[in-house]
Amino acid sequence: MEDSISGIVLLISFSLLLGALVLAFYRLLKGPSINDRITAMDLIASVVMGFVLVYSVLINQSVYFDIPVIISLISFFGTVAVSTYLKHKNG
């Protein structure tokens, strides 16, 4: 455990990300329009990417670094898909 990051730092980082998740979830539940909810979903994808990255440092496994690549692609496609659906539904 000589060259690993101290657990306190990772714990604080997890708490900050958890706070972000809770606030984004509040906006997801409350958001007046559907577009607010899509924005919140986009932010939640970023938060999950941060979780996975910090967790990969915690357990010292570099394999976990593949997951954020996939999440970044899927979240983009999801956002564009829902937006396009809304545009066609309304217009």
Binding site: I12, S13, L16, L17, A20, L23, V47
Partner: peptide
């Protein structure tokens, strides 16, 4: 890492 989490918050 801390600064990144802070900006997401």
């Amino acid at each position: 890492i801390l600064a990144g989490s802070f900006f997401i918050l």
